[in-house]
């Protein structure tokens, strides 16, 4: 094995999501489901049992009409870079952080479905297959061969479209390069976002647009104080968005309490 085929330095893939651009259209969720062979919902599924690797939350400033304001916050696996909560808890190493990409990978084939990682994840970015995946008859032809469908009883989550990374790496390998060039590998949600609200790239690469934006002002990360160093950044110029996204939950109003 010669040196030039080895990767030069580990990447730290991450994204910056411009909350001010997100219209909540859901294109990312659909593109993600299509790309990653996430099955359609079972009739009984709800927002609590469904699988959406990326979920667009609607946040409110808490005011009532007409002072109310809303923003959309897409939340996918935040690819925690430090003390990744889900990795250390998995009893059988079905979760790992790829040292070369910084991506937190979930191995459904190794997973026994104990769901401990779900309890550990403060971002609720992990989803359990409560049902066997079912596509309407004939629709299995539209599945993406780059991603294996999961079976019921395992946990899955966003992995920054590993299938696309594989494809990009294969193309790069065909061209004799060990790693795809910046821009050759982009997750489906990033590509699909109609407003280009998501900037994806290697945060370890100072010159990447993602790193630049992450460094820039107006960014925040969810639950920053937990110290998990997520690699998904959010930016907004609206002060209330920062306030709400970083406030503690105790200030929520009573009518929002369910149950």
């Amino acid at each position: 094995m010669t040196m030039d085929t080895k990767r030069k330095r580990p990447a730290r893939y991450g994204m910056v999501i411009d909350v001010d651009r997100c219209t909540g259209c859901g294109a990312c969720m659909i593109a993600c489901a299509v790309e990653n062979n996430v099955p359609p919902a079972q009739p009984e599924a709800t927002d609590r049992t469904g699988i959406t690797w990326v979920r667009v939350y609607q946040i409110h400033n808490g005011a009532s009409f007409p002072e109310n304001r809303t923003a959309f916050v897409p939340v996918m696996c935040q690819q925690c870079g430090h003390q990744t909560p889900c990795v250390s808890v998995c009893p059988q190493q079905a979760v790992d952080v790829d040292r070369e990409t910084g991506i937190v990978g979930q191995m459904p084939q190794r997973c026994l479905g104990c769901r401990y990682c779900m309890a550990a994840c403060p971002y609720h970015a992990r989803y359990f297959n409560w049902w066997d995946p079912v596509w309407p008859k004939g629709m299995e032809r539209t599945l993406n061969p780059a991603v294996a469908p999961r079976m019921r009883g395992v946990v899955e989550k966003c992995n920054f479209c590993q299938g696309r990374l594989h494809a990009a790496r294969e193309r790069a390998a065909a061209a004799g390069r060990a790693e795809p060039k910046p821009g050759e590998y982009v997750p489906a949600c990033v590509e699909a976002c109609p407003t280009a609200a998501i900037t994806f790239g290697d945060l370890a690469d100072e010159n990447s647009a993602a790193a630049e934006q992450a460094r820039g002002g107006n960014t925040f990360r969810l639950l920053q104080k937990l110290g998990t160093e997520p690699k998904v950044y959010y930016r907004s110029s609206r002060p209330w968005v920062h306030q709400v996204a970083q406030q503690d939950f105790g200030r929520r109003k009573k009518e929002e309490i369910r149950g």
Partner: peptide, 14 residues
Amino acid sequence: RCGVGQQGCLDCHK
């Protein structure tokens, strides 16, 4: 042996 794919599961799994 070759020092590639530093044991990230998703290096080879999909």
